[in-house]
Design a protein around this nucleic acid. Structure first.
Lengths: 239, 239
DNA sequence: AATTTATCGATTGTTCAACAATCCTTCGAT
DNA sequence: ATCGAAGGATTGTTGAACAATCGATAAATT
């Protein structure tokens, strides 16, 4: 059973919602995530970690039991995940972990090309550019430490920072959702030791061009990168 | 009460789910919208028509009664609308019709510039270009008939067709969500007789450039259009 | 034997009712 | 007038129930 070990932790993290914590949260106007949100978070985590593989069925009752919440709450969490395309609803049949088909892969990269290239063409504020640089350095560090997983997240930070150049809240969330979709496939299993390592130099070059204000060059490099990346993906997964 | 007259129709549209209809649907594998979906549709309609104005509060119980459904179902519909940003959840306070602030308007236009301009730069298939042309003609027709509302929808079809040039399912849904967000403000009240009429010629020009394969020119025209449109919006709605 | 038709079990879709938690407002005290 | 304490209303969450639907198994037909 996929969600087995989650039973012990439950949806905790907030653990016992003591009165003290609750009032403190209210006073500080800190948004306390609802139970449904925490369930969605837990599932998102399991999806990202590859515990739940594409195509797997998510049964309401079992997840409700495993996480110690009501079926209705699980249902709300499902709605959230479905809106992010991480999960697909088959009416009267259940929800399944989304599985990207070849066409979807191309589609995702189309979105990325559109948003990322446009963002980098816009330049962005010095702080935003600094964030891109930071992601590059983060990647170098991870590479030095032979931290494959860290390399992956650094790469995602890099592309997130690129989109952030545009300074648009909506584009940011769109991008993070797209990246979440892709994470369904970038599991440890999928990526071998030097899956990302080749991209390190690309990121560096793109960042340098960006810092130098050579936006068109940066855009071209990024575009080439994305095309190559898509090819690699199409190669690995089906067809 | 905002949802008053909806009480009579309820969430109908499927009306009596007769056995005949149900089995026919099953045989034809036609996806029958769930009750929650129909509730969401009804609310989306009321939002688009300006029956529910930005900032208005949506109380679960009253909507549940008005539409003759359970509170839980209304809740699911809310989740759907919230994921589309048509509605905002204030934890423990309720959901409210989203109201775009000046910053949001700029943000929305940033998304549109990113996606639409990129799409038009890509060119697109002949059929996709034909769809753009069709939207232009639709607008002319509406203008000839003095149909302001038709003019508005034609304009939306035009921009939808532009995005469709990219042939990306995800970009299409993103665009339609953005347009839905904007509809919250383009009510009959907001637009006077010749609000869209000025855009007719713009659309025509853009379409012609597109048909002629002058993609960069088309992109420039579109960009100028969007900038002007944003200014106009910012002018109307507080600074 | 292969295909169709019933039957059954399991799961989803939806409703209802209850309760705790939280917020807003009103009221009262200082 | 400010502050704080009830009170009421609404949301968040649960639990149980039931109809509708699907998939698979078993039976019946050709």
């Amino acid at each position: 059973m996929a969600t087995s070990e989650a039973a012990t932790r439950g949806v905790s993290g907030t653990g016992a919602t003591s009165a003290a914590t609750a009032t403190a949260a209210a006073r500080l106007r800190v948004a306390v995530p609802s139970v449904a949100d925490r369930v969605a978070d837990e599932l998102r985590l399991q999806l990202a970690e590859g515990i739940l593989l594409p195509g797997a069925r998510l049964t309401e009752s079992t997840i409700a039991e495993d996480l110690g919440v009501s079926r209705n709450t699980v249902r709300e969490a499902f709605a959230e995940l479905a809106s992010e395309r991480l999960v697909v609803r088959h009416p009267n049949r259940g929800v399944f972990v989304a599985s990207l088909e070849p066409g979807d892969i191309h589609d995702v990269y189309t979105v990325r090309r559109t948003i990322e290239v446009s963002a980098i063409r816009g330049g962005g504020s010095p702080e935003a550019v600094a964030a891109v640089r930071a992601a590059v350095e983060e990647g170098k560090l991870a590479a030095a430490a032979n931290d494959d997983e860290g390399l992956g997240t650094a790469n995602q930070h890099f592309h997130g920072a690129i989109v952030a150049l545009a300074g648009s809240r909506r584009l940011n969330t769109i991008m993070s959702q797209v990246l979440a979709e892709m994470r369904l496939f970038f599991h440890k299993a999928t990526m071998d030791a030097n899956f990302y390592s080749g991209y390190l130099k690309d990121n560096e070059e793109i960042c340098e061009a960006l810092e130098a204000g050579e936006l068109e060059k940066a855009a071209d490099l990024l575009l080439a990168y994305l095309d190559r990346s898509e090819d690699k993906q199409a190669e690995v997964h089906g067809e």
